[in-house]
Design a protein around this nucleic acid. Structure first.
Lengths: 249, 249
DNA sequence: CGCCTGATTGACGCGGTTCAACCTCAGTGG
DNA sequence: CCACTGAGGTTGAACCGCGTCAATCAGGCG
């Protein structure tokens, strides 16, 4: 489904894009943005829609403008592992290869700013700092993936669940620019199934660990969608990360 | 320890480097190699030596010329997870940041071709296709890390161990350019501890699974250092990867 | 020979999965 | 208005895979 209707909104101009200063184009100047404007288009996906299949071709590359998508791999017997998240400003696809390695599925409605792959490759070749920015973003993702590997390989169920709440709190605090060190409150919409896929656990274990952490006073869940953390430092303790910030993302 | 002695060997010239066509400099021309020759130096580390500590600064960036190093993270309570491998042609460090996120330890004697970070950054800015090559290599590493996440999160101990043998076989076959589909034979020097750190298991479980796979005829270990796989397809079956090649690295 | 490091094997128990029952809540339609 | 339904979540009970602890073994080296 193409977001034709949106092409006339202010968002259609790169200079007004909400991800203008974080996406692959962060370091582009006015002229370069104009060049992007000429070759980009928008594409949106509905919640649950598959954006790309593991091992299959996608003809485009693109940057998330709004919404959330996730990368995962599923075995024929049903085992599923989430391996990454696409948030606004994250990039999907790579220059020089036309297939993706993982299933990409929209969680919310997702809007991408997309380019034909060959056209984008030409652009990168002509605009070196786009490549540099992509390199920087990719290195950050690699670090995050490796920290995640630690969680999957070595943390207990309780630590995994606590880690996830720490991450969600951090991410929310980063968006709303609140200091997360004291008590804090944030919304959460993720299902138990998604948490389980993320953490390499079963949904039952996730549910039990959430109950246990709640009983131990590490957080409350009011009205089912809002988490309230009275003492963030205690939650971090439970997450099993050492002091120097070995925290995901 | 600096490999001063080696500076007069043929290897000291980039054009003769064994990683010439695979490392970050793969797409450099003669003139660019000459520029690299001018600012590079070599540095070697002994087996077991720590090359960099997680969260600490390293003043240089560099490319592995020979040997093996590994990236890992260890918690104060001793839990350890390997999160990556540095093989010849792999790159350590990143432009624009002077600390590493993981411990880097030499497994064998490792020789790096190193650059001062600031100098390397200038080089990347002046030579765009170096950045592009780094991006490509980093994207490959990211894919590998994500496949590894699947292994850590969802595979059984038996599948993990089988996967590791598949990987070692593939890597050896790639080096010696032998078709791995039939029976094959390759050396292995990795300790149980390293395998356990790699797979997110205990050494005892690794040992038991190796015995089980051996008893089931999936491979033999002659003389303690050589693995013999009579039927590679069967081993792949046991690794739990689906057909389309969801295999690490 | 004794020592040390790495590997194997067994016994045991715990943490997390599996299977299953039940609960809540939001639609939906009579 | 309430019964019905289905999806997501919680909780319990039983099982078992893997970690832990410990004993033993094999090989390399002084």
């Amino acid at each position: 489904m193409h977001a034709v209707a949106r092409l006339n909104t202010p968002r259609a101009r790169c200079a007004d894009c909400p991800t203008r200063h974080r996406a692959f184009c962060a370091s582009c100047d006015i002229d370069e943005l104009a060049a992007l404007d000429r070759i980009k288009s928008y594409r949106t996906y509905k919640p649950g829609e598959t954006i790309a299949w593991a091992g299959k071709k996608i003809g485009f590359v693109g940057s998330v403008v709004e919404g959330v998508a996730l990368l995962s791999r599923t075995l024929p017997d049903g085992r599923r592992q989430m391996v990454g998240l696409l948030l606004p400003s994250d990039f999907l696809g790579r220059p020089g290869r036309d297939e993706v390695s993982f299933d990409v599925v929209a969680v919310t409605t997702v809007m991408f700013c997309v380019f034909r792959r060959t056209e984008f490759e030409r652009l990168v070749a002509a605009t070196p700092h786009i490549g540099q920015r992509l390199l920087d973003m990719t290195l950050d993702e690699l670090d995050a993936a490796r920290k995640w590997m630690f969680l999957l390989g070595r943390k207990t169920a309780r630590e995994k669940v606590a880690s996830l709440f720490v991450i969600m709190a951090r991410r929310d605090a980063a968006l709303s620019e609140v200091d997360p060190s004291g008590g804090l409150r944030f919304p959460f919409y993720i299902t138990r199934q998604a948490m389980a896929d993320y953490l390499g656990l079963s949904i039952e274990t996730v549910s039990r660990q959430i109950s246990a952490l709640r009983n131990d006073g590490l957080f409350e869940i009011t009205d089912g969608r809002t988490v309230l953390v009275p003492d963030f430092a205690r939650l971090i303790d439970e997450s099993g990360d050492d002091a120097d910030g070995g925290v995901l993302i």
